[in-house]
Design a protein around this nucleic acid. Structure first.
Lengths: 194, 194
DNA sequence: GGACACATGTAACAAGTTACATGATTGG
DNA sequence: CCAATCATGTAACTTGTTACATGTGTCC
């Protein structure tokens, strides 16, 4: 039940389901995503469990907002989740499967194209995080002095950056090796050597 | 529907649900996981769609095996899935959320301990992949000459290695910075500076 | 005889996705 | 008036998890 705990994390300051949905559309989408149609019932369930409380509040523009506040039980639950164990489980990285089975694509050029398109996607995502980092660094001079909350948020951002950079380095290496393979195959005049 | 396509990828050679389950317990668990209770009905569904065919075969040791074979339609479906688009979507990386919200853990030492435990888990996973790599390299001298299938499998393995190494580098950096923070806080005699 | 690996499944439940319904307010 | 943004939700469906049921053959 990670979504519950991610919502608890963001509810350090009170927010509505709509606000939380925006987090997943922006920064949070780099590690998690949830539709609002999942967020709204989840918040209700969490309130029933006593992790949250809610009250109505007027909106600047639009209908009434249902603002959720984290309770002491909610904070305790979050702390348990955070410290109990590393939340490393069964990740679902379909792109690794795609890379692994690219041998089933007969034309080598098509396979290279797949990796090039992966690179394009990750370059965009990296650019987003790099922009986010530049904003953080502009606001906070020496981030070692920042409050704990900001420190760990930035730390997580750096984890994201490191991972996208590792992916991009792999893309460059892989495209290069595939192109060398293509050149070798081209010299033989045949597409594949059995 | 990634599970379907991962199964199609592994069914380059015929296999049973039990065999495929073992893949997820071993190498495949680094990018995907599925229980056999999910695999068996999925294979049935895929057979109904015409992506697979099955036949009974005796087991060396145990009851009859239901061996699935990939059809031409199955292979075509896999090729479409592989080349259509990069399978980069909404990854669910709960450990990044954990890193991001560590500011909600009041004792800095507990937060450091979380990162140390992440490091321990990823070190184990990296060791597994490094062993797998050593086996691959022992069998195949220059892997550039390997058949396409083996080439891409090894390439995916390198992607996994690169990512665990990036995670571990982040752990080292983060633990180091948190320890410096702790030292600074210790000099003040107070736990947290507001 | 008992533990273990092999082998296939079902049922109930939880989590996540897709499509849709409803309605307020603002800006062009 | 229309489109966009704000705002909350429901229903049907797919995907994934947990717990259990059943039975074979091998090794100690």
């Amino acid at each position: 039940m990670s979504l519950d705990h991610i919502l608890l994390g963001y509810l350090q300051t009170p927010a509505t389901g709509y606000d939380l949905g925006r987090e997943f559309e922006e920064g949070a989408r780099h590690f998690w995503f949830a539709e609002r149609s999942q967020i709204y019932p989840t918040l209700r369930r969490m309130e029933k469990r006593g992790w949250l409380e809610s009250h109505q509040a007027p909106s600047e523009r639009g209908p009434q907002r249902k603002v959720y506040t984290r309770t002491q039980e909610g904070l305790a639950e979050l702390r348990t989740w955070l410290t109990e164990e590393p939340r490393i489980g069964h990740e679902r990285l379909a792109y690794i499967a795609q890379a692994a089975f690219l041998g089933s694509v007969p034309d080598l050029e098509d396979a290279i194209q797949v990796v090039r398109r992966m690179r394009a996607v990750w370059e965009q995502k990296l650019a987003y995080l790099e922009y986010a980092e530049s904003e953080v660094l502009a606001q906070a001079g020496d981030w070692l002095d920042q409050p704990r909350e900001a420190f760990h948020m930035y730390s997580a951002l750096r984890l994201g950056l490191a991972q996208y950079r590792a992916k991009l380095a792999w893309c460059e290496e892989t495209i290069h090796r595939l192109e060398r393979r293509r050149a070798a195959a081209g010299n033989d005049a045949t597409e594949e050597v059995p």
